[in-house]
Each structure stands twice: as C-alpha cells, then as structure tokens.
C-alpha cells in the first residue's frame, strides 16, 4: 500500500509552513537561511511527488534547477553574512538596523 499523493502534498505544505514560520520568528540570520532552505526543499518534495503521481516529467527536471539555485543563494548569502559579521560583529536581524532613523 503506497502513501497517497495527498499525504505527500500535506507533508510538503507542512514543511513549507514550518519554514515560513521560522523565517518570521527567528532573529538569527543563519537560522533564517536554514528555514528558507527548508521552504525550497519542501517545494522540491511536492514537485517530485506530483511528478510521480501525475506522470509528468517537468517537475523532476525542475528539482535540479531548484537545488542549484538554492546552493548558489546560500553561498552568496553566507558570504554576505561573513563579510557583515566582520564589520558589525553580529548577525542578529534586530541589531542590523543602522538604517532606521
């Protein structure tokens, strides 16, 4: 007995929602990034499930692009974080407010 498509979609939306929640509530930029990754991965899970259950192939191909993009995004993000940390000694979002007057 295989799990149904609904189960996969539910799972991936739950993951997505958890990631979204994390982005909203966490203040540590690194954790925020992780939560963003979680959201992207949730999307890939749904894609693969849809691909398999619907018999369409584009979804699987899309996963490749998503993973690549996610990796690039993380790399750039971490580079910025490190550079910023060098200058400011913090990566807490609420302390990054030099531009509020």
């Amino acid at each position: 007995m295989t799990p149904s498509l609904d189960a996969y979609v539910m799972l991936s939306s739950a993951l997505f929602a958890i990631g979204f929640l994390g982005v909203l509530v966490r203040r540590n930029t690194l954790v925020i990034f992780m939560c963003l990754e979680l959201m992207l991965v949730a999307a890939t899970l749904a894609l693969v499930a849809f691909s398999r259950f619907n018999g369409t192939e584009d979804g699987d191909v899309f996963v490749f692009f998503i993973l690549t993009v996610a990796a690039a995004e993380v790399a750039v993000g971490l580079a910025i974080i490190v550079a910023l940390f060098r200058l400011r000694q913090t990566i807490q979002v609420d302390r990054l407010n030099s531009m509020r007057h």
């Binding site: 693969v48 398999r52 259950f53 018999g55 979804g59 699987d60 191909v61």
Partner: peptide
C-alpha cells in the same frame, strides 16, 4: 479542500 484524489502513481518521473 485540496483533495487531489488518491490515484495510484501514474509514471516513474524523470528522476
């Protein structure tokens, strides 16, 4: 509301 119908897998998927 999002019921997609519990059909069995149709294809293998390119993956």
């Amino acid at each position: 509301r999002g019921r997609l119908g519990g059909g069995p897998p149709v294809g293998q998927g390119a993956g």
